[in-house]
Design a protein around this nucleic acid. Structure first.
Lengths: 196, 196, 196, 196
DNA sequence: AATGAATGAGCATTCATTCAT
DNA sequence: TATGAATGAATGCTCATTCAT
């Protein structure tokens, strides 16, 4: 229903950016429910009324953050797509794996926001997931002309899951076997695209 | 600090079980923050005072639920451990993969509870993770006598991540390429343990 | 949806009475929208949480006040009904006119509460009005056996309107012609029931 | 204190008219307190700053609306006054009764605005009421030369109340006995002026 | 003069926890 | 020991009004 209001003047644009950043950090630290609008506004150095001027409620703010993440990842995938014909399997594997790693922090925030706000869990996250998988499938078919639609679909699911898993392996701080495990994982994904 | 009080009488044991079940369902539906102690008590058919008798605060209740999940999974891993010498690589892969799948619902609840309550996310989930990985590493060394401690560690990380990933692939309801993706994934894990 | 919770213990009964009185006075002074739950609780000497214990939201409190008024008026009409056979036209007129006058303050509060809370004004006030008119019609038919249902209905509308009007004439403080106007009005209603 | 600024140019006049209309509709739908200046401006298609240009605060806008109603009704009474010598009692009764009915919507708005904003209810409404009663008394004395000032005053009170009551009988939508009740009421007022 | 972003006190409501009964 | 009414700090959100652009 309600949507974020686009700032029109210079000052508003800067303020919205600060509000989004503040929202990202507070949500990341405390989670959706525990985060308070008051603290978000304070951290952005804005009065609470200004926060509500642009984001008429907490949900809208969370949605804006998720959208920002989605844009970033989609842009990164589009960049790969533009160069995919020049890549071999190992290179493509590495490029894909790096997409989510590059946006790891933003990603875990976006997922937690999506999860936190839906009683039927997974309904909304699914939309984002689908869209990213579809993009990966497109990249695969562009990369390997003979790939059937269905094959590309299944592979996109596997690859996307592998991408997410690698992020988890990366994010967790220091644990025994971390470096080797990451190497195993990357190796597996390279092989998955090489032995095709 | 505070811990759950052990019920002493027959009636107390039954009531604690109902309180835990009610807590599980409310937490699962609404998330940690949004769940209210009042509703949990009501759903268990118990007065709020009784809930606080056994679980002196909300965190203790959540911890008890996580502990219940941990016990179940550890028991399942112990059962594999007891039979591991008779299993080949494919069988071991399947047995491990099925452990988390069998407790998928309980698992997602436990993880969300752990995540929801810690500002530095992942600190507490890590404890659970470590304990399960360690168990997997033990299984691997028992299974394959020549495996070095470090190798077993790295492999346990990869395997545990693969187990979690398969749960995610399973849990997400109907999407294009689901069956094939799951088959790919299982195949990969079998090969991982076969080509050792 | 939500309704007032009935107090069960002695203390609760007293507290609810004080909350209702406080609500009545604050609503009467400031109007529904301008009245604050905080002030109502304070004036009743109760913490805000107690107010919400019994009246889960502002609307429910207002409804309870309207209901209290309705009960009082209905009881007064029922008392007339019980004695109606012994009354002549003038006496019945006076008795009816006095009902609303006796509850004038409560009445204007109830009406303002009903008016303030409904976008389509008059929808809910209508329910109260209907119920009171119906009671008046019953009284008329009991009083004058030969009255047809439809005649009684029309007369109840006229009488009820005349009752409300007299209240307004009364309530307005000092103005030229007040006493005479009231006398005219009473005279008219007496004649209305005498010349039947 | 503050008063509405008179628009000076063509554009201002049109804009003030649209603001007043918007104010009327929003006040009528939501009541004085619940109506927001922002919505009023929006409904008039004007920026909020423009609304405050002409009506420096919410009260001034409400006052302007009441004044607009008063002008309309006073003009209607003046028209009757100009023709009163040619009217018999029944005709005069009907002319008077029709004045308020013709402005019923505006009237209920004006009354709600007057009622809503004054803690001591009736203070301001009284001013309007007095002015209209005085006009009615003038009409009566012009109509019936021998009427004493005091008689005319009392009658103006009764008549004005009867006029308001008829509006209420009219405005309420469909109820049993409506048509007959209205006929009774009109009949009574005619007789009141005929039997003088 | 015209605009609309900025402001922040104030409001309704919630809920974990306590403690009198 | 068992119960559930009592408590009040904390939260999301509103809106009349101002004033920089």
């Amino acid at each position: 229903m309600a949507v974020a209001k686009e700032p029109k003047r210079q000052r508003g644009i800067a303020r919205v950016a600060r509000l989004l950043d503040a929202g990202a950090s507070v949500f990341a630290e405390q989670g959706y429910k525990a985060a308070t609008m008051t603290e978000i506004a304070a951290r952005a150095g804005a009065p609470i009324g200004s926060l509500y001027q642009f984001f008429p409620n907490k949900d809208v703010l969370a949605d804006a953050l998720v959208a920002r993440y989605a844009e970033h990842v989609e842009a990164a995938l589009d960049r790969i797509k533009a160069q995919v014909v020049d890549l071999d399997g190992s290179q493509l594997a590495d490029r894909l794996l790096d997409v989510l790693i590059a946006h790891a922090a933003e990603r875990s925030l976006a997922l937690s926001l999506l999860d936190a706000r839906w009683e039927q869990p997974g309904v909304r996250p699914g939309v984002l997931r689908e869209s990213l998988r579809r993009r990966i499938a497109e990249i695969l078919r562009l990369w390997h002309g003979k790939l059937l639609e269905e094959e590309a679909q299944a592979m996109s699911v596997v690859l996307f899951q592998a991408m997410k898993s690698l992020v988890q392996l990366h994010e967790e701080k220091r644990y025994p076997g971390k470096a080797e495990a990451i190497a195993h994982w990357r190796g597996w994904v390279r092989r998955y695209l090489t032995e095709i």
